[in-house]
Nucleic acid binder design. Sequence first.
DNA 1: CTAATTCCTTGATCTGGATCAGAAAGTAAA
DNA 2: TTTACTTTCTGATCCAGATCAAGGAATTAG
Lengths: 252, 252
Amino acid sequence: MSAHTQSRFNSTLTSQCQNCSLSALCLPLALADEDITKLDQIIERKKPLKKGEFLFRQGDVFDSVYAVRSGTLKTFNITAYGEEQITGFYCPSELVGLSGIDSNAYPVSAKALETTTVCEIPFSHLEELSSQIPSLKHQIFKVMSRKISDDQQMMVLLGKKNADEKVASFLLNLSNRFKKRGYSATSFRLSMSRGEIGNYLGLAVETVSRVITRFQKNELIHVDGKEIEIVDLPEMQKLVGVASDCGKIAHI
Amino acid sequence: MSAHTQSRFNSTLTSQCQNCSLSALCLPLALADEDITKLDQIIERKKPLKKGEFLFRQGDVFDSVYAVRSGTLKTFNITAYGEEQITGFYCPSELVGLSGIDSNAYPVSAKALETTTVCEIPFSHLEELSSQIPSLKHQIFKVMSRKISDDQQMMVLLGKKNADEKVASFLLNLSNRFKKRGYSATSFRLSMSRGEIGNYLGLAVETVSRVITRFQKNELIHVDGKEIEIVDLPEMQKLVGVASDCGKIAHI
DNA sequence: CTAATTCCTTGATCTGGATCAGAAAGTAAA
DNA sequence: TTTACTTTCTGATCCAGATCAAGGAATTAG
């Protein structure tokens, strides 16, 4: 038994990518079994973060990216005036920390919105391994590329959409992410507060609350505290703008 | 002489990374001479785009990323209602098209704001080469990571800043990019219209015009059409918020 | 359990920036 | 050159969403 395996047995969590229900969505996607095993060996399962605990803080030295296993994280900046600006929410299978590669420091903080477990992937090891496994390297490029285009969609949302469109986009985005993981696309629980939603969308809390109330009144959704049910999905999609997925649009 | 070299000699532009004044900012950064030569061999110099011409269009199959050699590009989405939303401006040494890797199609269009030349870097070749040259792979990771954190700063701008802060941030951002390339940080020419600035910043044209006029009245800048001179750099920086570069902020 | 916080909702009011309108200055085509 | 178009600027008006205020619901602490 290698020292490495030893340490794995000593850790509180010894699950593996192979057994992980998220492997088809996460980095192991598109890897052969033997390559998954290699990836598995560099990953450290960490003990759960409690609500409000930090995974890393703005300015910390960058060493790892993290895959969310369960729970939810938010990333945020602190602006010049000391206010928080949330830049993203992270659900299971999603990778946090990629923005730290360039400057060798995390440019944002990451905090747990509820009890959250993550897989720590030391980046230097991941980079080495990606030299041996081209499909892993390609997968990393894809994840980063995806993040870039998602963020650009977010810029469109912040720059051009009104309050209704913002909230509808947000809910449908969550819906799609739940669906991808095999959960209900129409019925889910928000792990973030109204305030955090508003912060993320560039809206006041009161506006978020009013829009959600109105959506409920118009029978687009049903709300019970943090529980959301999307009642009229087509109408919600119409609100967001059918063409929100780009490809469909004719060239100009 | 290989077929490849042959084709290079036939092309209108045969300059090389080695001679390129941008090599210290662009992908060749951190590469050994022999590696630059390898990179050089996969790069195709394209004939200049005229103002208004497309480099690629939203939905086109992704095959290459492009480094801007001279001129400026904008990337944009077309929203559900057919309006344009500009997601970025690209200056010499900057890489366009990275958001296309994930879906194998460009999720945005790229258009020249003035006569612009680019180096085309076929991504499949770049990816292959990055397996042989770890520092090249690392450089690509860094460029993508940088793009992610820049976009997140843009999200903060769009979500939290008022019109004055947006315009000031925009001008200082351009200033920094000119400076990095060895040009004046305080005196430069805007290649985009007021309308494009407003579109990018989530402001109406009229607002951009008014803010710029007011900045001039308050002797922060001097404006002559598209020529900008930053007169009071410290005051402009104060406007943007001194802490706009993250690292300086204490943990909370 | 109660008390203290924090979160959510609703109403009333205010305001920064959008929108509308039109003049002036460029720019380009003819 | 004139004509047509685009861009920029400025003023007047309007409104979506922010802010202020306050009561109720939910969580958390003790």
